[in-house]
Nucleic acid binder design. Structure first.
Lengths: 233, 233
DNA sequence: AGATCCAACCAATTCGAAATTGGTTGAGAG
DNA sequence: CTCTCAACCAATTTCGAATTGGTTGGATCT
């Protein structure tokens, strides 16, 4: 093999690879064939191919991962959207701040898009929370009420965000069990607050819905703080 | 078989089951033994056991799922927080609506909590987008700029939500990534819009930051609609 | 010597057949 | 008519084998 060929071969394989990538029909996820197959297809050694792939990876044209394969485009960001990992890095106070920022806006959107079906379900959830015989039942219907608000936005990504917040809430407050065996009292603050939220949504009052949700979450937050303080008994 | 025994046996199995649940040491996830084992252990028919389990399920004491098993406690909500599943149920328009609802609020929060370090990084990202030689480079720094805004909230759950939206955006717009060879023009709308956002955050102008972010996303949306090829901001 | 190739190996990941599990049906016994 | 039992169904999990990018050490060729 001549020296000219050797020196040129490096560049040549990269060029050959670029040509292949420009021409090839890749699957939806941008994955390209395994190194072993690709090296055979291009008629080059795997070592040579890997050198070329290394060049393209350094340029950011492709990214690779053991066991997964080689892909075109930017390496996907190390997403922080993993509930388990996320719950270890945060705390209830921070989570409540996030809820105070997000959920009022969800309520605002819901006021614009809620259908009669959603309104009926909201009313039903509210009735069920009032009839609840135990705190467990109350929480079940309270959770469903809040989720119905999110569903009423008729926006799938928004509903996904809400679910993520909810999952986080469960994970973060995991150790805490409601030790109170009695049922919610009839004058529990949430009843009138839920009423205000639902009424605002019914009236298509976007600002009112957002404000009511904010008020509600703030009083929930106060309650949590109070309960934590009284946990000494 | 006497009628008294029939009626009584139903209740008796439920009672027996309650006793078992109260006494048994369940694994961490609250899963109880398979019906086939449990029916043998309690010395009752699977049909009988299933009737009793049905009662407890109706009461909300347990929940069941084919292939998974039977578990104590409330049925976990069908969390929609899985990127892959979510991206199949939504579309770019819906996603943009969600971004228009969420990201301005993130910018608003960032205006309150951003540190000098965050401001410096915002400025650096902005400079890099202006210097970008290719759309790919521009996109890299644009993405980092927006993420820095989210980091500036200093709120982990909020950052997680932002990452989830971002991951969704990649998944949804995957099919139509175009390799536009030219670089962003110097008068690209995003440059001045980014400037407005950063300035508002520097000035602790919460309403201004939210409004600027909303304006920015709206013009990105217009751009997307106009040319339906580039997913860049 | 000094690259380069090659085969084997490694660890992360994916794939797939088989086992497990709650849900359902139909024949037969009481 | 009701209950039991066995078989079957479909959703899910499990676990070993195959796949894949990354690495190493000896063989091969200038």
């Amino acid at each position: 093999m001549l020296a000219v060929d050797e020196v040129g071969s490096n560049r040549s394989v990269v060029t050959q690879l670029r040509a292949y990538l420009a021409q090839a029909t890749l699957p939806e996820d941008g994955r390209l064939p395994p190194e072993r197959d690709l090296s055979a297809a291009l008629g080059v050694t795997r070592t040579e191919l890997r050198k070329a792939l290394g060049t393209l990876e350094a340029e950011g044209q492709i990214w690779r991962h053991v066991g997964k394969g080689t892909f075109m485009g930017n390496r996907p960001v190390d997403t922080l959207s993993d509930i388990a990992a996320l719950s270890k890095r945060t705390n209830p106070a921070e989570l409540m701040r996030a809820r105070l920022i997000i959920e009022p806006e969800i309520a605002r959107a819901a006021a614009l898009t809620a259908t009669p079906m959603h309104l009926a379900e909201l009313r039903m959830c509210q009735a069920r929370t009032r009839e609840a015989a135990t705190w467990r039942q109350y929480e079940t219907w309270d959770t469903r009420l809040h989720r119905t608000v999110a569903e009423a936005t008729q926006n799938t990504p928004l509903l996904g965000l809400f679910d993520m917040l909810n999952a986080l809430r469960r994970a973060v407050t995991w150790g805490r069990l409601r030790s109170n065996p009695v049922k919610p009292e009839p004058d529990h603050h949430s009843f009138t607050e839920h009423e205000t939220i639902i009424t605002a949504i019914e009236n298509r009052d976007m600002n009112g819905a957002a404000a009511a949700m904010r008020t509600h979450l703030q009083s929930v937050e106060r309650n949590l703080l109070a309960r934590q303080l009284s946990e000494t008994d």
